[in-house]
C-alpha cells in the first residue's frame, strides 16, 4: 500500500503537503489530527509503522509557522520509513502528544519541550529533561544565544581574567 495515497484518502485536507527528497517521504499533517494519523499509520494493514525512531523539533525562524515537529516512523514489516511533520505557530506552540500510540515518544517530547518550548498536551510527565528545572528559556531556539564566552589568550589574558569567576576555598 502506498502510504501517501492511503493517508490522503483517509484524511483528505488534514494532509497539508507531501515532499520527496532522495527517497525520503515527508508528509505534513494538520497538528490537530496527528494522533489519528499516527494511530492509522500504526494499525492499518499494509502500512504497519510499528516503530517510532525519532521525534525532533525544528525552528524555522523567521518563517511562520515557526516550529516544526518531525516524527520518524519505521515499519519493520514493510522495511520502509516515513516522516510526518507538524507545523506550529511561533507563540505558544502546542500539539497533542502521541505517547498513547507510541510510548517511545515520551522522552523525545520532553526533550522538545525542554529545548524548543513546544508543549505537548496530555503528556503524562511534561517536565524539563536535559536542562536544570529552573533554567530560563529554551536553548535550541534560533533566537537563544549560544552563550559563548571570550577565549582567554595571552594577549587578552588580563582583560578576560577580570571577569572570570574563580572558586576559592
Amino acid at each position: 500500500m502506498n502510504p501517501v495515497e492511503a493517508l490522503q484518502a483517509e484524511f483528505g485536507d488534514a494532509i497539508q503537503a507531501v515532499e520527496e527528497f532522495r527517497g525520503e517521504i515527508t508528509v505534513t499533517v494538520d497538528g490537530a489530527r496527528i494522533v489519528d494519523v499516527c494511530q492509522y499509520c500504526r494499525d492499518t494493514e499494509g502500512l504497519q509503522y510499528n516503530f517510532l525512531s525519532d521525534v525532533t523539533g525544528i525552528d524555522y525562524l523567521p518563517q511562520e509557522p515557526r516550529f516544526g515537529v518531525a516524527y520518524h516512523l519505521y515499519s519493520m514489516y514493510q522495511n520502509r520509513s516515513l516522516r510526518l511533520k507538524v507545523l506550529l505557530p511561533g507563540d505558544e506552540p502546542a500539539v497533542s502528544t502521541v505517547t498513547g500510540v507510541y510510548p517511545a515518544a515520551n522522552w523525545f517530547e520532553r526533550e522538545i519541550f525542554d529545548l524548543f518550548g513546544v508543549t505537548f498536551t496530555n503528556h503524562p510527565d511534561m517536565r524539563r529533561i536535559l536542562m536544570p528545572a529552573d533554567w530560563d528559556g529554551h536553548p535550541l531556539r534560533k533566537d537563544y544565544p549560544l552563550g559563548y564566552e571570550t577565549v582567554q589568550f595571552s594577549f587578552n589574558f588580563d582583560e578576560v581574567d577580570k571577569f572570570k569567576p574563580y572558586a576559592k576555598e
Binding site: 525520503e24 525544528i58 518531525a70 520518524h72
Partner: peptide, 17 residues
C-alpha cells in the same frame, strides 16, 4: 533539505536528522 539517516551503532539505532 531535510534528511534522516540511521545506522547500527554498538548500542542500537543511531539516527541523524
Amino acid at each position: 533539505s531535510e534528511v534522516y539517516v540511521r545506522i547500527e551503532s554498538p548500542r542500537g539505532e543511531l539516527g541523524c536528522f
